[in-house]
Design a protein around this nucleic acid. Structure first.
Length: 222
DNA sequence: TTGTGTTTTACGACCTCC
DNA sequence: GGAGGTCGTAAAACACAA
């Protein structure tokens, strides 16, 4: 019987003594030099091991879940500190009846799960933010559309009124010197002054302070 | 019962730090 | 160079629908 077999039997013995707390370890391939990096992959070492067993499992070690209590203690320790210094590892291992290697592996896996969870949370948060931005963009797009419609209507109204004024002036026999007085000829223009010179177009048509306010209002949305 | 998907345990390869 | 980290993955354990 070589050393490896002795170790295997010891492990089996311990695992039978403490079935709930001890997860049998795989015997390391002591003395074997590291192979020149054959990428992938071992046979499951946790399964392979000793013989002699009465439970029908042919005495093979099986990968065993850690007990609830062990996991609880490990979780508590992980809460304290995600990194695992060697002293703490050894202390935890002896307290929980585990191999230090198991404690180290548990922490490695726990860190990986923690990282995944964090990434998942960040992704969810970003997704929500993105959704909100998309909704806001839709709202703004619709508002822009609405304002464009308003602008279009206003322009058409201006055009219509301008045409009406033009018509009124061209029909007047004294069009060149007419001064449209307040709400006398047309209620549409109220106090608006029409320029003295037909040739200067209608740039002086809307001097109403109200209209100026309207432009100001519209300019907020342009 | 069994097929299948998920979680947990464990490990090899590789990297970084002291 | 060794210890301890991450990453990717195998395989056992587990959950669960069909």
């Amino acid at each position: 019987m070589n050393n490896q077999n002795v170790d295997e039997h010891s492990l089996l013995f311990i695992s039978q003594l403490y079935p709930t707390v001890y997860t049998p370890l795989v015997p390391q391939q002591a003395g074997k030099s590291k192979p020149a990096r054959p990428r992938r992959r071992r046979k499951s070492k946790t399964v392979a091991a000793a013989e002699v067993d009465g439970d029908g499992s042919n005495g093979w070690f099986r990968k065993r879940k850690l007990s609830d209590e062990q996991v609880r203690m490990l979780e508590m320790s992980f809460e304290d500190e995600h990194k695992l210094e060697s002293e703490r590892k050894d202390r935890l291992a002896s307290e929980l009846g585990l191999d230090p290697r198991q404690v180290a592996v548990w922490f490695q896996n726990r860190r990986a799960r923690w990282k995944n969870k964090r990434l998942e949370d960040e992704y969810t948060k970003l997704k929500h933010t993105h959704e909100n931005v998309v909704v806001e963009k839709c709202r703004l797009d619709s508002e822009v559309l609405h304002l464009k419609e308003q602008l279009y209507d206003a322009e058409r109204e201006i055009q219509r009124l301008a045409q009406r004024v033009e018509g009124t002036l061209s029909n007047s026999p004294i069009s060149s010197s007419v001064s449209v007085e307040a709400n006398h000829t047309t209620p549409l223009f109220g106090d608006y002054e029409v320029g003295n010179d037909v040739g200067d177009g209608y740039e002086n048509l809307f001097y109403s302070p109200d209209y100026a306010d309207g432009l100001e209002w519209m300019s907020q949305f342009m």
